[in-house]
């Protein structure tokens, strides 16, 4: 059995979280709130030393005053606490949105569309490749919003749904082992690191 107080804390909190599987209870609630508090505290420390100091304080100390522009923009968030100037919050949001949207358009065309298209156009005339190409076509048909899913279109879209269900089943089955491995790892921690029952 471990004599490290920190291991005991980790073990008891682990069991507290597992108690939620039965139902919500005060022990789980304690663990949940502690988890939230410590994770937010961690974010504070992390942001202070990995964002605030190296990206704002040190550049300003070194004479790079350009960083004061995004600093000022970030400070506009505090306008939220006033009644009259709340609308100023829209400026930093607009910058984040505009940059994010602008970056995503060409990247999505390149990776989300062109690469997928290229990969689908296969040269070998095999049954498997035909099944694959037909599947892509039928799945895309399912996402046509301009056409009522009736008749031929409905039939093709329904075929697309079957393909989607097969894909979902495959993903579901694929992740099961990984999730069980996570649980095994926690049990190992409890039995080995904490109780010392297994070696």
């Amino acid at each position: 059995m471990s004599t490290n107080i920190w291991v005991w804390i980790a073990a008891l909190l682990t069991l507290s979280v597992y108690s939620f599987l039965y139902k919500d209870n005060p022990i789980y609630r304690f663990a949940e709130y502690l988890f939230i508090g410590t994770s937010v505290g961690y974010s504070i420390g992390f942001l202070y030393w990995n964002a605030f100091i190296p990206r704002i304080v040190r550049p300003v100390q070194a004479g790079d005053y350009i960083v004061l522009i995004p600093t000022f923009i970030g400070l506009l968030f505090f306008a939220r606490f006033t009644r009259k100037w709340t609308w100023l919050v829209r400026y930093p949001i607009a910058i984040s949105l505009g940059i994010g949207a602008g970056i995503s358009i060409p990247l999505t065309i390149q990776a989300g569309i062109f690469r997928q298209l290229q990969a689908t156009m296969v040269g070998d005339f095999t049954i498997s490749n035909i099944i694959m190409v037909v599947g892509v076509i039928c799945t895309l048909f399912y996402f046509f919003f301009s056409l009522e899913q009736k008749g031929v279109v409905g039939g093709v879209a329904k075929t697309g749904i079957w393909y989607i269900m097969i894909a979902f089943g495959a993903i579901f089955g694929y992740t099961v082992m990984a999730r069980i491995a996570l649980f095994v790892s926690r049990v190992q921690f409890l039995l080995h690191d904490w109780l010392g029952i297994i070696k």
């Binding site: 979280v17 939620f20 139902k23 919500d24 789980y28 609630r29 663990a31 949940e32 988890f35 939230i36 994770s39 937010v40 961690y42 974010s43």
Partner: peptide, 19 residues
């Protein structure tokens, strides 16, 4: 706001749903 941590957030939302 719950937490920036993925699973702390999940735990918090699970708690909200249960209560």
């Amino acid at each position: 706001f719950i937490s920036s941590s993925q699973f702390a957030y999940a735990a918090g939302v699970a708690g909200i749903m249960a209560r």
